[in-house]
C-alpha cells in the first residue's frame, strides 16, 4: 500500500510524528484558479499564460477594463477563503520552502515573503465583488457559473457546483489552471481516518483502515465526493475528464504541501489564531499589523 502514495501525502499522514497515524481517503487540490472561458476570452486574457501572482493582478486589471464582469469572485464574509488565497499566493511567489518555513513557526525568517503575499492579496481585493463581505464562497462561485465573474481561487470542490449547473461544461464553458506560480505543486486538502490512541476496538479500526487504503474504497468514495484517490494506482476511468486531469497533475507534481486554512499544516490553535489575524486583515487591510499578528499566532 505504501509505495502507491506520494511523499507529501505520506508525510501528512504521519501528522508530524515518526509513524503513520492516519489513512488518507481522498485529496482535494487547493491551488486552483477556475475561470469562466467566455469572460476571459472576451477580455482577451489567456489564463494558461499567467506566470505568477503579479501577472494575475495584471490579468484581472484587463478583465476589469474590458468587461463588466467581476475579476475575482472572492468572499470575505468569513476569513478562511482569504487564508487559503494568501497561503497560495505565498507559495506562488516564494515557493513551498518559504511556506514551510512559515508553518514551522519561523515567521520572522520569511518576513518579506509574508508581507509581499499580504500586499498582493490586498491588491487583489480591489477586484473582489462589491458584496464580497455578504456572500458565502458558493455564492461567489455561482458568479463564475453565471458569467458574472472571471476568476475564482478555490479548492477543486468548487467544480461540483459547475457539474451541477445546467449546460456549464468542463473545458468548453469553464477551465482551470494551477494558481499562477504553483505549477508542479499540488496543495493537499485531505480527509483521513485516524487510528486513535484511546481505542476500545483496535482490531476493528485496523480492519477498517486497511479497507480505506484499498483501491476499491478510494474509487467508491472519490467518484462520489469529487476528489481524487490518494493512491496513484487507482484507475481513473470512472472519474470524468476534470478529475482525470487533476489526477494526472497530481501524479506529475513535484511537491505536495499541506494547508493552513484546512488544518493540516499547523496545529488547531495556531490555525485559529491565523484565521483571527486574517479576520482583522479583512477589516483593516493593514499589512504590517497583520504580519505582527501572524508572528504572535505561533506563540502558544
Amino acid at each position: 500500500m505504501k509505495e502507491n502514495y506520494l511523499q507529501g501525502v505520506k508525510s501528512a499522514a504521519k501528522g508530524g510524528t515518526e509513524n503513520f497515524v492516519s489513512v488518507p481517503i481522498n485529496i482535494h487540490r487547493l491551488n486552483n484558479l477556475f475561470y469562466n472561458k467566455e469572460v476571459v476570452e472576451s477580455a482577451g486574457v489567456d489564463p494558461t499564460n499567467i506566470g505568477d501572482p503579479s501577472a494575475l493582478m495584471d490579468a484581472m486589471d484587463t478583465v476589469a477594463q474590458e468587461t463588466d464582469a467581476v475579476p475575482m469572485a472572492h468572499q470575505t464574509q468569513s476569513p478562511w477563503s482569504t487564508v487559503q488565497l494568501w497561503e497560495t499566493v505565498l507559495i506562488g511567489e516564494q515557493g513551498v520552502g518559504a511556506f514551510e518555513t512559515f508553518t514551522s513557526g519561523d515567521v520572522a525568517g520569511v518576513e518579506s515573503a509574508v508581507k509581499s503575499a499580504l500586499k498582493r492579496v490586498k491588491e487583489y481585493s480591489e477586484h473582489y465583488p462589491e458584496d464580497a463581505g455578504s456572500i458565502s464562497w458558493d455564492q461567489g462561485n455561482s458568479m463564475i457559473v453565471n458569467g458574472e465573474a472571471a476568476f475564482i481561487h478555490q479548492g477543486d470542490w468548487a467544480a461540483g457546483q459547475y457539474k451541477a449547473a445546467d449546460s456549464f461544461e468542463y473545458d468548453s464553458a469553464w477551465g482551470n489552471v494551477a494558481f499562477p506560480g504553483t505549477e508542479g505543486i499540488y496543495s493537499l486538502v485531505m480527509d483521513s481516518f485516524v487510528f486513535p490512541k484511546n481505542n476500545p476496538s483496535p482490531d476493528a479500526t485496523t480492519k477498517f483502515l486497511t479497507y480505506c487504503g484499498t483501491k476499491d474504497a478510494q474509487k467508491r468514495f472519490n467518484t462520489k465526493k469529487g476528489s481524487i484517490p490518494p493512491r496513484t494506482d487507482v484507475s481513473m476511468d470512472e472519474f470524468g475528464p476534470f478529475l482525470q486531469a487533476q489526477s494526472e497533475d497530481f501524479a506529475n507534481s513535484n511537491q505536495q504541501p499541506a494547508t493552513i486554512a484546512h488544518g493540516t499544516a499547523v496545529r488547531p490553535e495556531i490555525k485559529s489564531n491565523i484565521e483571527g489575524a486574517f479576520a482583522s486583515f479583512l477589516e483593516s487591510y493593514n499589512v504590517n499589523k497583520t504580519y505582527d499578528e501572524l508572528v504572535t499566532a505561533f506563540d502558544v
Partner: peptide
C-alpha cells in the same frame, strides 16, 4: 453570519 472568526469589530 461570520463563522467562528467575526473579526475584531464584532467578536
Amino acid at each position: 453570519m461570520f463563522g467562528p472568526n467575526p473579526g475584531p469589530s464584532t467578536d
